[in-house]
Design a protein around this nucleic acid. Structure first.
Length: 415
RNA sequence: GGAGGGGUUCCAGAGCGGUCAAAUGGGGCGGGCUGUAAACCCGUUGACUUCGGUCUUCGAAAGUUCGAAUCUUUCCCCCUCCA
């Protein structure tokens, strides 16, 4: 532990914001970062087409690096995604094919660009794909040069491995090698980019330490690892994993309005923590407002997080739409909308089909259940007849408001 | 290669010939209370339905039976021990 007051500015804020979990050598890292601007990397898995809020803390770390003049390297795991990280997974991941991974990489890169400053030449992110070096590895020489630095004895002690074995779940040799490849990534970045720091989630600790040690042994250079805690909700659930779908960062999968809603619905106990974790508001400023009305804080949180990703405009619209949708008697003209061909109305479209068209639900049985439970509303009036035919009169100025439950609202527009 | 254990609905996990669309818990969804919070209470949780039912599901296929998640055979996969 080094003296908090003397600590490097980046590290200090890193801690103040609750990003800190473990560090391989805090004191040295602190003085190194005081002395020079460094390059640090975070790896992103490309298993999914988009990132979700589970990766947001890592993204905030990248932003914090930039804020302090350091340069982030974003490693997209095009190679390692082909293997699958066993950490934190109790089952073997499904293996994706080449095109899927390439597509995912492109998407994820675009999302990250939204969060990062791409203009400042000193700090703009360096994007790398580890497939570029992993694909050409020669097995024999890799084993000789890199493999010799790893002992099975030690690898077996890592949580990612141990957990699987303890739980009697299979761990393939392929996955077993994941940590070596990740260590190799760090070595590669150390050589190529002079990267000295890897940041990752706490579940990456083992992989990161391996990298630090490999670099030490291979090129006798000092590098560092820094991990962030796993963010759990006050209820104990993992962040961003709602059953109804993860909280995606890509607008294609989750509208700005729904993203805003996600933050607006934060548990009371998490609000201040999230303001620190997921907004740029200075710590001192958060302290000033942290006793304000809890719902105002939630709106603040929602606005900041949404504008960071989708822009100010989108955040304002979402706030406006929410106001209208929840105040009751307004028709929510700024809600996200779905267009419906007016011919459908003439053809006696019923409520069930309307909901299917709106994509709010896809199972007719489920919709029937919802109607029975008084969950479906048109223009704030409960629909109790599952055979209700949608009439032209329902549309005010070309649109109607369709609601499922208290929180899902959508505008149906005539086309 | 040998011996044993196992694969059940979103997850965990019961069922071991009909009463099984499958206990229980978790999660999800909806309703109530509230603050678009938490906690709590209630309902619901395969699909389709003219609400009478109909269809598809218990690793895969074939079989026994009036009837199978449950029995038999083969195959696939996982785990443990032995070689």
């Amino acid at each position: 532990m080094c003296n908090y007051k003397l600590m490097n500015k980046f590290l200090k804020e890193f801690k103040d914001r609750g990003f800190f979990y473990q560090c391989t050598n805090e004191e040295e890292l602190s003085s190194l970062m005081d002395k020079e601007k460094i390059k640090a990397y975070i790896g992103f898995d490309c298993t999914a087409e988009s990132l979700h809020v589970g990766s947001l803390l890592q993204i905030m770390c990248l932003r914090l690096l930039q804020k302090n003049g350091h340069r982030p390297i974003v490693l997209l795991g095009g190679g390692t995604t082909r293997i699958g990280d066993p950490s934190g997974k109790d089952k073997t991941r499904k293996i994706l094919n080449e095109e899927e991974i390439e597509k995912n990489i492109k998407n994820i890169k675009n999302i990250l660009k939204k969060f990062l400053d791409n203009d400042n030449p000193e700090t703009k992110p360096i994007f790398v794909n580890n497939y570029t070096w992993l694909k050409n590895l020669n097995y024999i020489s890799f084993l000789r040069d890199i493999g010799k630095h790893f002992t099975i004895n030690r690898m077996l002690t890592f949580d990612s491995v141990k957990l699987r074995l303890d739980r009697e779940q299979s761990l393939s040799y392929m996955e077993f090698n994941y940590m070596i490849l990740q260590a190799y990534d760090f070595l590669e970045l150390s050589k190529k980019e002079n990267c000295v720091l890897q940041i990752g989630g706490s579940d990456q600790w083992g992989n990161i330490v391996n990298g630090v040690e490999l670099i030490k042994r291979y090129s006798n250079k000092q590098s560092y690892g820094l991990t962030t805690p796993l963010i759990t909700l006050a209820t104990g659930a993992k962040m961003g994993k709602s059953e109804n779908g993860a909280i995606w960062l890509d607008e294609k999968f989750l509208s700005a309005y729904d993203y805003w809603q996600f933050w607006r619905n934060t548990d009371d106990r998490d609000v201040v923590k999230f303001l620190k974790n997921f907004t740029d508001i200075e710590i001192e400023d958060i302290k000033k407002v942290e006793n304000n009305n809890i719902n105002d804080l939630k709106i603040l949180l929602a606005n900041k997080t949404t504008s960071m990703l989708h822009g100010n405009e989108a955040a304002k619209n979402s706030e406006q739409a929410a106001k209208e949708a929840f105040s009751g008697n307004s028709l929510g003209s700024s809600l996200p909308s779905v267009k419906v061909n007016s011919q459908n109305i003439d053809n006696k479209l019923d409520i069930i089909d309307l909901i299917i068209l709106s994509k709010l639900e896809k199972s007719k049985s489920e919709i029937r259940r919802l109607i029975k439970g008084n969950a479906v509303k048109i223009n704030d009036k409960v629909v109790s007849d599952e055979k209700l035919i949608i009439e032209n009169e329902f549309f005010n100025e070309n649109y109607l408001k369709l609601s499922i439950g208290k929180k899902r609202h959508i505008k149906i527009e005539l086309d």
